[in-house]
Amino acid sequence: METELITITEYCYKYDIEPSFIISLEDSGIISLTIVDSEKYIHIQQFGELDKYIHLHYDLQINIEGIDAIRHLLQKVDHMQQEIQELKSQLHLHQ
């Protein structure tokens, strides 16, 4: 379990970003951090998601509120793509 967690400091050092960005994401409910002995950690499974938010914030200058809105919209897109895929399969079955 220990190897699957990384401290915010370590993560931010690796990506050269400010820890306040990660804290803001958590404050907005966009990500959840793991607390062990009062220290906040990022789980390795969150890396992909965090990468995306870093891209949006640092490359595209999108603020935290924008990231949250985009996150919701992308979730909708994802559900819709899944639904389309399922409907295509069903349609295919009756063709």
Partner: peptide, 15 residues
């Protein structure tokens, strides 16, 4: 660049 990147960024255009 910013305008176009926001439109076509892969994270905003999955698949």
């Amino acid at each position: 660049y910013r305008k176009l990147a926001r439109k076509y960024h892969p994270d905003l255009n999955p698949n």
